[in-house]
Write a protein that binds this DNA or RNA. Structure first.
Lengths: 213, 213
DNA sequence: AAAAATATGTGACATTTGCCACAAATGGGT
DNA sequence: ACCCATTTGTGGCAAATGTCACATATTTTT
């Protein structure tokens, strides 16, 4: 338990204390189960402990879009991601079965009298989780702010290969999901990928990608 | 000084201490001055205290894009926004003259032995600033993830009017800047706005916008 | 092992968008 | 009050993108 970012420098016993102090709730979820529904106004922060989840938006016309992929360490909640535009609903759905814990944003940001040491350690750890979230969101904004599908793909590929420090890497999701991530039509993306392959800019077989430029 | 989020529950004297402890640097900037250049690898967190700044990216073809607007309380830095894709440069430029303070990400996340009370208060305050940043980025992702210019505009307008709890509101920037924000061509956006006006969906005069749907 | 569901790949066609060029309006600064 | 820079507004045209429709892998479930 100690190696997970949320629990850094926190012992199991201290975590027990905190659960009482902050009203922490921990739950398991099965695939496709609804973990959280924005608009319920529960004002909670959720943290993915294991498994994975997706934040999806369904607008008034019924279009589904994936706003975020959450892996262990991922955080969500109204205070961390303003959402509810008029009619469309935003939900967090379980993808890979796993555990999620919830704590109140208020309890975290308001200094409490007792157990203040626990408190500050938890805030420190939450700080790194939220900072990581900001990084991921920044990356996505960088990709989405490109004007064309080609530029979006090149930006995303460049980032991924920079992370692994190799020109080749494996996509963390399917090509269909990649189309969602860059917010483009799947078949339009496929067409562009074909062109890019033909021009010798990238090699794509399955989820293996290599930048050859 | 106490009302600014970064300094909540921190007195001027404590702030003096912290500046020594964390090696905080504070500086003033004139309009158009370069505040920060990613890729210098200084690994600092910057916080806008007053004035405003923009985070801009110039890609290898020379295209300029605004990634973020920073107002007082806005934070930036490599650890908070992964950036440097291959050749293109990302910089923070001063817009409205003001002050910025810098502190080391390491000092913030590593528990220090002395002055631990200062430390945890600062982390708490940084937590709220980074959480706010995550919120802003989430909003932008929500807008950018819409497929068409019209949907982007409607999403953005809906968010703004939801904030003010009114159907009318004032744009925080020019229409040109709005085009940058939604990452669309300005004239294409104008064309779409004209159509929307003609259909009676919105009223736009200057920076005044009203949703009439 | 078969069946069902999901993902990949491709093409034709309509629409949207980006790009360019230019005129008018607005806004700061001196 | 003037000038200069920026913003707003508009149109034509080419290129990029989305939509639909379908065939083929691939993966997952039964």
């Amino acid at each position: 338990m100690e190696q997970f970012p949320l629990f850094r420098n926190i012992t199991a016993e201290q975590w027990q204390d905190m659960q009482r102090c902050f009203g922490v709730v921990e739950r398991s979820y099965r695939a496709d189960e609804v973990i959280y529904d924005f608009g319920d106004g529960r004002n909670m922060i959720g943290i993915v402990l294991s498994g994975s989840a997706v934040v999806e938006r369904i607008d008034d016309q019924g279009n589904r879009a994936i706003l975020e992929h959450l892996t262990p360490g991922g955080v969500f909640g109204e205070m961390l991601m303003f959402a509810n535009v008029h009619g469309d609903s935003i939900r967090v759905l379980c993808e890979q079965p796993g555990r999620v814990c919830f704590l109140s944003y208020q309890a975290l940001t308001k200094r409490c009298e007792n157990a203040c040491d626990h408190h500050s350690r938890l805030v420190e750890n939450m700080f790194t989780l939220v900072a990581d979230k900001a990084t991921l969101l920044s990356e996505r904004v960088e990709v989405l702010s490109r004007r064309s599908i080609r530029d979006k793909l090149l930006c995303y590929f460049a980032m991924q290969s920079a992370k692994g420090q190799q020109s080749a890497f494996t996509l963390p999701f399917t090509l269909s999901a990649l189309a969602d991530y860059i917010s483009a039509d799947r078949s339009a993306m496929m067409r562009e990928l074909k062109k890019m392959r033909a021009e010798g800019i990238v090699e794509v077989k399955g989820r293996q990608v290599r930048l050859t430029a």
